[in-house]
């Protein structure tokens, strides 16, 4: 059952990265849109993510619940030594979710809209940035539970070049996902063109940030290169991601909407696969070579059994309903 639970954990992290990521990205795209097009973009964005954004963020809750029920030691260690970035990310989640709802449900549209927008846009950037920082910190080997001073234990565990570069990489991936998603939601050719341009820029940004991540990893002596290119399966995943990028652009220029989205999701899946496969079953790498393994630190068998069944039964309800939700609110006409 442990493998079932781990599979669900991986899947919810992946889906949060893709769906939640595209959702954060939509805010980033709005942030990067020039003032004259911003209101148009906002409208498209609202129609595109309005009905589904709450559901997209549920994956984070599922992941965190799996972690604290199934792998409580890992959850506690993470919460203790990455306390500060987690708090900042939470503030971002709160600010973003409420600002998005408030700006829509404020019955009077006046100067308050400016404030909601500012908060929404800023938190759309900060939240995925810190998510990336947290993710990078779990594998960068900087967490030192036996450190004696505050900075080493609670600040340098996440405040380092590698984590920050992964944070920026995450932001650019979110922006890329969102722009590819929004291409299919555009109202006319001009809008479509704008989103295609955004996607090009975001794609370049993601590649640049990705290269920076590898360079910083080399400087910081984090064996990222070995993880990604050293394993045959990881290597295949990276190659598949590269090929799918070409396919994605081919489909965009052929005017397709759904296929590029699938390709973008596929790329993120391959990247996450390559990185997580390389150090499975370790979830957190600590300073000094020790690591916290999902298999060694799992909850007692009865809990894993119950959690596994809860997830299987839960997904029987959730997945069809979720697909129907996406299906109902997507644009049916393929242009």
């Amino acid at each position: 059952m442990a493998y079932v639970v781990i599979a669900y954990l991986w899947l919810s992290i992946l889906l949060y990265l893709i769906l939640g990521g595209a959702d954060f990205g939509a805010g980033i795209i709005e942030l990067l849109t020039s003032a004259k097009n911003r209101i148009r973009t906002r409208k498209t964005l609202y129609h595109a993510i309005g009905p589904i954004w709450e559901a997209n963020h549920m994956w984070l809750i599922i992941a965190i619940v799996i972690l604290f029920v199934g792998f409580p030691v890992i959850y506690s260690e993470m919460s203790t030594y990455l306390h500060i970035p987690l708090v900042i990310m939470l503030v971002g989640i709160i600010a973003r979710g409420t600002a998005f709802v408030f700006r829509h449900y404020d019955a009077i549209k006046d100067d308050m809209q400016w404030l909601y927008n500012r908060i929404f846009l800023l938190s759309s950037f900060v939240t995925p940035f810190f998510l990336g920082i947290i993710a990078a910190s779990t594998i960068s080997g900087r967490i030192q539970p036996d450190a004696s001073d505050f900075q080493t234990a609670y600040v340098f565990s996440w405040f380092n070049l590698f984590s920050i570069s992964v944070g920026l990489f995450t932001v650019s991936i979110c922006g890329f996902l969102a722009s590819v998603f929004l291409i299919g939601e555009a109202d006319d050719e001009a809008d479509r063109k704008r989103f295609v341009n955004k996607a090009i820029r975001m794609n370049i940004a993601a590649i640049v940030c990705g290269i920076i991540v590898f360079i910083v990893a080399e400087i910081d002596k984090i064996p990222l290169r070995h993880w990604v290119f050293g394993e045959p399966l990881g290597l295949i995943a990276v190659q598949a991601a590269t090929v799918s990028l070409a396919v994605l652009w081919y489909f965009i220029y052929r005017g397709k909407n759904m296929l590029p989205r699938i390709m973008a999701g596929f790329q993120v899946t391959m990247i996450l696969f390559a990185v997580s496969y390389a150090h499975f079953p370790d979830f957190i790498r600590l300073h000094g070579g020790r690591s916290l393994s999902l298999l060694e630190l799992q909850a007692p068998p009865k809990t894993m059994e119950a959690l596994g069944w809860a997830l299987i039964i839960g997904s029987v309800f959730i997945l069809p309903a979720l697909f129907y939700l996406y299906y109902s609110f997507q644009r049916h006409e393929e242009r």
Partner: peptide, 12 residues
């Protein structure tokens, strides 16, 4: 976590 987590996973 592993003892009282069941209702949380259903609540998810």
């Amino acid at each position: 976590g592993p003892i009282f987590g069941m209702p949380f996973s259903l609540e998810g």
